[in-house]
Simulated assay, not measured.
Amino acid sequence: MATLNLVKLCVGCDSVEDLEAWIASSLDECRRSGEPIEDYHTTRMTPTRGAELLAGGSLYWVIKGNVQCRQRLLEIRPFTDGEGISRCRLVLEPTVIRTDWQPRRAFQGWRYLKAADAPADLGDGAAAALMAMPPKLRRELADLGLL
């Protein structure tokens, strides 16, 4: 079975650092409230290709018009909320893995992303130098088409 991924806009985050801070805050809130300590994202639609997604797939985050990072998918949990609306929790590995930047236009919801079309993870060397730059500078360079 081929691995499949999801891609989604990371609304409200201006950088990968913002996403990492949000995850840390969310996990801290779970600890304080006594809830299971896990990172998840709630969506309206439940993916129909769950087996392919859970065979090593990730949720790739689009931040400011570029795929910039991913989180590994651990579980897909459909549920009905208090208002009777079907929803889905995408349970994620809390570790954020930075990727090559890949431009992406705005869209609603999430989309499937084939493994062959997914951006590569950043490694060492030039990638480490890129991550050492302040987020604002990285964004300006990306806007100029230099990243």
Rank of each mutant, 00 (worst) to 15 (best):
M1A: 14
T3H: 01
T3R: 01
L4M: 13
L4G: 07
L6E: 06
L9M: 12
L9Y: 00
C10V: 01
V11A: 14
V11T: 07
G12T: 04
G12L: 08
E17G: 09
L19P: 11
A21Q: 09
A24T: 08
A24Y: 06
A24V: 05
L27S: 08
D28I: 02
C30M: 01
R32I: 08
E35Q: 12
E35W: 03
E35A: 15
I37T: 13
D39S: 13
H41T: 06
H41D: 15
H41L: 05
T42H: 04
T42F: 04
M45T: 12
R49L: 12
A51T: 12
L53E: 08
L54G: 14
L54S: 10
A55D: 15
G56C: 11
G57N: 03
L59Y: 05
Y60T: 02
Y60M: 01
K64G: 06
G65W: 04
N66L: 01
N66G: 07
V67C: 04
V67W: 00
Q68S: 14
C69Q: 09
C69E: 09
R70F: 07
L73R: 00
E75W: 05
I76W: 10
I76L: 15
F79H: 14
T80I: 15
G82T: 01
G82H: 00
G82L: 03
E83W: 07
G84H: 08
S86P: 11
R87N: 05
E93T: 06
T95A: 14
T95M: 06
T95C: 09
V96Q: 09
I97A: 04
D100F: 02
W101K: 02
W101D: 13
Q102F: 13
R105G: 12
R105M: 13
A106W: 09
A106I: 07
Q108L: 07
G109S: 09
W110Y: 15
A116I: 01
A120W: 01
D124Y: 12
A127R: 03
A127V: 08
A127G: 15
A129D: 14
A129R: 06
M131G: 09
A132S: 13
P134G: 00
P135C: 07
P135N: 00
K136F: 08
L137E: 15
R139K: 10
A142F: 02
D143G: 13
L144V: 00
L144P: 01
L144D: 02
L146D: 04
